[in-house]
Design a protein around this nucleic acid. Structure first.
Length: 974
RNA sequence: GGGGGAUUAGCUCAGUUGGGAGAGCGCUACAAUGGCAUUGUAGAGGUCAUCGGUUCAAGUCCGUUAUCCUCCA
């Protein structure tokens, strides 16, 4: 064996690397040697899976990174996650030994990523699992053989040591006696180190748990690194110690070997980031960022962080979990922004991270060839988010500058942490950025205050706790019954036997033997041995209906699924129901038929979307209700009108075709081969149910469908909107509701026509005209210039005898009014009211004759050298009155005081007073003047010395007010 | 699920106990200069997101809804 290579040159010359591997990103010469001499990561992964296959394990593919089927986690945290139900015996086992290489994501140690040799957010975990099959002895022997045998990894046994849980003599003995490991290399550790979950015996939680045994490899520098953890789940924790660990009847093995760590050991490199599948990403990051990769440097840490985060982001976005504001999407967004911030701090000002996506796909293509297919989409999604973040940073810099100037003004020497936190929480200004800029100006940064404020924010935001393993009566029912047979594909009515009744009171669930209508208030859950009721899943809502016996009627208001159980939610209407009763379960057939129409329409819509907007329009989620459906899909822009029409026409065409709908159970691989649409994050059973429609649609789907696309009936898209960046949502109606919607549309249009007093075909034109009228009336009252009518846009004439035209007309009206289509009538009505009001004001204004600066001046009095005007201008708005006053000032060179009184409508009085500069200079105030007058008409007011306005509510006292106005100004001038 | 913020001219945004809706860029017209670039003058363009409340008076204060941004879970 070659000499150890810990002293690996800390600097890599990227140009040399490129020569070695051509287009892909190449390692340094010495690292190349290491990789040639030792095992590649792809080879390690393959060997592991092959070894356990040879020991009778079923080789299973990696589960998705973001398991939407598991509400208790956002990301797959470990290899065992996909086998949770296997461990608990809640599913039928097709195999009792499995092995996987699982892609995982954890953010708990995010602060350490890049700083230490072994921390990642994204990583792969090799694992072997036993579901009540083999236990400690085999698990330990096989691990040892795989690690040390020349045929497999061939690690030097002398450099391996292990830990066991302090009370686990069984494991210790196996290591010592069977493997022959000296006791000096078997350490006994406490429950906080060697128990899963950590410290479970004393601190909980209750449930499945067990001791573990870790395997360490000693590096050349004497330090040891943990490469494998064997978990022996053999207990059920019940309550507090002592004697709270009960042996499980069926014991399990759950192991995890860190792929990257083990590879780094095999390849003899000082950090995971230098193994053959990671160094190319680090090097590429250095290249893209235009810096040299130096291991022991701040930039080195940054580049490693970027390499880690870009892997996480690329895999998530590949699974259509795009950066966003909620949950998993938010975590990805944060990871991405952290990486981008690192780039920013190395001087980058343009998106760069997206350039690393092809590199990631390249080094990971062995186990994950599918990454190659989505490189473009993934890179574009990442580029967009990067670009958004650069804008955020840009805005942030301005805010930071502002903060600095106020700091300087106040003579502070430290950036207030609370303020930095507020800036971060409100505008996303990264504190690291703030701190870096602060350092440049010799400010210190109050990290303690910042963390304190963020902690507070966390507390305020709250959050619900999700249990790793659920407990309760439903879970125990799961274990005893396993599954409810679903009969609903073939029938909507059947006999069944009641297997369990659960009563829900407050947050507590309680299993009961029987129930009567007297307890009607309580919500009940009923589980049967078989049922025609469809439990909500795959977006399709649960069925409603009735479960009855001779002696009792139970109304089902919703149906949910719990694992493979079907749970009927509802309440007793009459009589009594008990466990063991034979009942008749009857689904509400009319509603079910409507759901079938909507669900089949969803598949057709999916097809139409892909055909119209492109293959990237993949389903993100959907909800299927009675003749109503909602469908989210990935698309950057809103759908245009033509696209919506094209989609509708494709759907309608497929409906007219009356294509047969069929379904069959096929092997998952076969379905994939057939090109059936599959969704990420969904857990598909194998075999799987494939639903086909004509020759245009194949989807994996457990839902209920019409037998012929013609049964869908009418179809209509009623909404298109944004859910989050990159995701659009459409809502559609089918069958009866679509028909009803069309009738409603027509009625609405009729109502508009009636309100506007015009023909149906004229509604759009009349609305536009009404808007124009309002505009010019307002302008006239505001005293603006002569308004030219807006150029009427050329619109294609709408044929309102057809439905499409009617709908287009309504949409156009909504656009003109910038209102939602639901309250058009209200808006039109209020527009009409406003027009009437404005018209009466205009006539009021014109009734008092032509008002102008001249006419007002001709009414003036002279008081000494001052020209005083106190006049009425009925119907005038404040704006007009101000303009007149301005004009008087221009025309009249003498000092002048003007007060205009206007009655507006029936019960409103407006007063505007103005004083020329000379009078203001003499210390007079228009505000005071108007202030003296306004109370007469029941109001108040104020303003600046040269111009003030006031209002009141008693028009009948205007003459009196004008008298007071004259007296007041006389007094002022005296 | 929760906290913070934003929404003003075509675009980017100002608007300071509530009292005349603004700037820059862009647009139109005219003029000057000219190879292009340019400069000056004038002008058009706004239900201050929505609905409601407080007030004599709301872009400004309070609440609703919508959309977007941002943070936490």
């Amino acid at each position: 064996m070659k000499t150890p290579r810990h002293d690996l040159p800390p600097t890599f010359n990227y140009r040399k690397l490129r020569l070695v591997l051509g287009d892909s990103i190449a390692p340094s010469e010495s690292t190349c040697l290491a990789w040639n001499a030792f095992m590649k990561t792809d080879e390690l992964r393959e060997k592991y899976l092959a070894y356990y296959q040879s020991q009778g394990h079923s080789r299973q593919p990696s589960d998705v990174l973001v398991p939407t089927w598991d509400p208790s986690v956002l990301f797959t945290p470990a290899g065992m996650n996909q086998f949770k139900d296997h461990f608990l015996g809640k599913v039928k086992l097709e195999y009792t030994r499995a092995t996987t290489c699982q892609k995982c994501l954890r953010t708990g140690d995010i602060e350490n990523v890049g700083r230490t040799a072994y921390h990642h957010t994204f990583f792969e975990m090799l694992g072997n699992f036993s579901f009540g099959d083999y236990f400690k002895s085999e698990a330990i022997s096989w691990a040892w053989e795989f690690l040390t045998s020349k045929k497999w990894l061939g690690l030097d046994p002398q450099r391996l040591s292990v830990t066991v849980y302090k009370d686990d003599d069984e494991a210790a003995n196996i290591w010592h006696e069977k493997i022959g490991l000296p006791t000096s290399r078997i350490a006994r550790m406490d429950e906080d180190e060697n128990f899963w979950p950590a410290s479970a015996p004393s601190q909980g939680p209750d449930g499945v748990c067990g001791p573990c045994s870790e395997i360490y490899f000693q590096l050349d520098n004497g330090k040891s690194v943990e490469i494998w953890n064997l978990v022996f789940t053999q207990f059920n924790r019940v309550g507090e110690p002592p004697n709270n660990l009960r042996p499980l009847p069926s014991k399990n093995i759950d192991t995890g070997m860190g792929l990257e760590r083990t590879a780094s050991v095999l390849q003899n490199v000082p950090t995971n980031f230098h193994i053959d599948i990671l160094l190319p990403i680090v090097s590429a990051a250095a290249d893209v960022c235009g810096v040299k990769y130096v291991y022991e440097s701040e930039n080195g840490r940054r580049l490693r962080r970027i390499a880690d985060h870009v892997r996480a982001c690329a895999f998530s976005v590949h699974e259509n979990v795009i950066p966003g504001p909620k949950k998993a999407r938010y975590v990805i967004k944060r990871l991405l922004r952290r990486a981008v911030l690192d780039g920013h701090q190395m001087g980058l000002r343009e998106p760069f991270l997206h350039q690393l996506v092809p590199v990631v796909a390249n080094v990971m293509q062995g186990p994950y060839p599918e990454l190659k297919d989505t490189v473009e989409r993934v890179a574009e999604t990442i580029r967009k988010e990067e670009s958004d973040f650069f804008s955020t940073i840009g805005a942030g810099l301005e805010r930071i500058e502002k903060a600095f100037s106020s700091l300087q003004a106040s003579g502070a020497a430290m950036v207030d942490g609370h303020e930095a936190a507020t800036l971060y929480q409100t505008y996303g200004v990264p504190p690291e950025l703030f701190q870096a800029l602060a350092a440049e100006r010799d400010f210190t940064f109050d990290w303690d205050g910042y963390r304190e404020a963020m902690k507070k924010h966390e507390d305020i935001s709250g959050g619900e706790k999700v249990e790793l393993f659920q407990t309760g009566p439903l879970e125990s029912l799961k274990e005893s019954l396993r599954r409810t047979e679903f009969l609903g594909y073939d029938t909507t009515q059947s006999q069944a036997v009641v297997k369990g009744i659960i009563r829900q009171a407050d947050d507590e669930q309680e299993r009961v033997e029987s129930t009567t209508a007297d307890t009607e208030l309580a919500e009940l859950r009923i589980v049967l041995d078989q049922s025609p009721f469809y439990g909500e899943s795959g977006g399709q809502v649960g069925d409603t209906g009735i479960i009855e016996t001779d002696g009792g009627v139970f109304e089902v208001i919703d149906t949910q699924r719990a694992g493979e159980l079907i749970v009927h939610l509802g309440r007793m209407k009459s009589g009594k129901l008990a466990e063991g009763d034979t009942v008749t379960a009857r689904v509400d057939e009319g509603r079910r038929a409507a759901i079938r129409r909507a669900h089949s329409a969803t598949h057709i819509l999916h097809h139409a979307l892909q055909k119209t907007v492109g293959l990237h329009a993949q389903q993100q989620g959907s909800k299927v209700d009675a003749d109503w459906l909602r469908f989210d899909f990935t698309n950057q822009q809103a759908l245009g009108d033509e696209q919506v029409e094209a989609i509708e026409s494709i759907v309608c065409e497929k409906v007219r075709l009356a294509a047969p709908v069929s379904w069959k159970n096929v092997r998952l691989a076969e379905a994939r081969q057939a090109g059936a649409m599959m969704l990420f994050g969904e857990k598909y059973p194998d075999p799987v149910r494939m639903v086909s429609m004509g020759d245009f649609s194949k989807e994996l789907c457990g839902g209920t469908h019409v037998s012929n696309t013609g049964d869908v009936g009418e179809f209509e898209l009623i909404a298109e909107e944004s859910v989050s960046a990159g995701t659009r949502r459409v809502v559609a109606l089918t069958g009866q509701r679509a028909t009803q919607h069309r009738a409603d549309t027509f009625q609405q249009l009729q109502a508009l026509a009636k309100a506007l007093n015009c023909e149906l075909g004229q509604v759009v034109e009349c609305t536009r005209q009404l808007q124009n009228e309002l505009r010019s009336l307002r302008k006239r009252l505001q005293g603006g210039g002569s308004s030219s009518d807006l150029a009427t846009p050329i619109v294609k004439s709408l044929d309102v005898s057809q439905y499409v035209g009617q709908r287009a007309a309504l949409k156009e009206v909504a656009r003109v009014l910038s209102a939602s289509t639901t309250d058009l009538i209200i808006r039109i009505q209020s527009a009409l009211d406003e027009r009437a009001k404005l018209q009466s004001q205009v006539s009021q204004l014109s009734a008092s004759g032509e008002v102008s600066a001249e006419s007002l001046l001709s009414d003036a009095n002279q008081v000494g050298d001052v020209t005083v005007v106190v006049s009425q201008t009925p119907g005038a708005t404040p704006n007009l009155m101000r303009q007149w006053i301005d004009q008087i000032r221009q025309k009249c060179s003498a000092p002048n005081a003007v007060l205009l009184v206007s009655q507006l409508g029936d019960d409103k009085v407006l007063l505007v007073a103005g004083l020329s500069r000379q009078l203001v200079a003499r210390g007079l105030s228009a505000g005071e003047w108007v202030g003296q007058v306004a109370p007469i008409v029941g109001g108040g007011g104020g303003g600046k010395p040269d111009l003030a306005q006031a209002g009141g509510k008693q028009p009948q006292r205007i003459p009196e007010a004008m008298q007071v106005a004259r007296e007041t100004i006389h007094r002022f001038l005296a």
